[in-house]
Design a binder for these strands. Sequence first.
DNA 1: TGCTGGCCCATGATATCCCATGTTATCCCA
DNA 2: TGGGATAACATGGGATATCATGGGCCAGCA
Lengths: 160, 160
Amino acid sequence: MTHFLGTHQNRLDAKGRVSVPAPFRAALRAHAEASGLPGPQLVLRPSHKHACIEGWPAAVFQSLATPLDRLDLFSEDHDDLAAALYADAFPAESDKEGRIVLPEHLTAHAGLKDAVVFMGLGRTFQIWEPAAAERRRTEARERARAGGLTLPGNPPRSAP
Amino acid sequence: MTHFLGTHQNRLDAKGRVSVPAPFRAALRAHAEASGLPGPQLVLRPSHKHACIEGWPAAVFQSLATPLDRLDLFSEDHDDLAAALYADAFPAESDKEGRIVLPEHLTAHAGLKDAVVFMGLGRTFQIWEPAAAERRRTEARERARAGGLTLPGNPPRSAP
DNA sequence: TGCTGGCCCATGATATCCCATGTTATCCCA
DNA sequence: TGGGATAACATGGGATATCATGGGCCAGCA
């Protein structure tokens, strides 16, 4: 499974650790082996749109940065984009048990207390405070339906 | 047989397991071999329209998600669609006997107790509580009759 | 030397695997 | 065409590995 599916709830312990759900660990491992990248396989960053943390496989995160190569290194655009992408990113390394430590500025941004929810989004995932995750899911369902996006039994009303 | 046909009733045991009807297993196996995808061949998700569980062959589910690839990873549309599609999906793997375990949030959504009905829908299937399945079938029959059966090449008499 | 952070081990809960069995459908032979 | 043999299927229960989680030890830093 190379995709992140489903929602998993885990506990944040006193040391700020959470177990990455086993299926997500497997997906991260698969990505790591496919890409051959060394170092941490997971990049965390605060979402710019929601009160949650985004989790990226290192390889996917790196592919994000390729548009940067087309920009002049000294342009403002490059600076802005690079800052937005990298400045508050955080490489997460898991311990032998598959846990990661969430830095304080990320838990604060997501409003995390002692329980956290991992929400699979296919190529990436997000980390939420449980109640917020629930709200977000219903909202996403409604918006997807309202926007005529592809859902089971609801073929797109107009091709993009 | 690459399609899901007919209705089958099986029992949900104390551990939350059900036998996937043999014909459906065969269809899943066919899909899996044709696509060559590794991992679980079946993706379950709650229906957004009915109180039932949808069953998707992994390959078909993946094709559902292809519109995502055309969207900017940072766009709201991508987020909404990805959350709606993936967040409550569940990869189901069958044991050696051909059984799958239904997670609690799915059985709750479908109101399943100890007997479940698999309803074939061609490329996909649904899992229902038996009485609800019966209601759904008669309803579907009546609506199809009342509205004139809409099929590609046989457009409805009046557009919605 | 006291404290913080990282590393490792221990444990309970949970899910996964595996074997056993009754029942039903299928096949073959008379 | 009927009846018996055989295989496939649905289902139950027990053993075993995996996972999530908690606590403790050791080293580095102040």
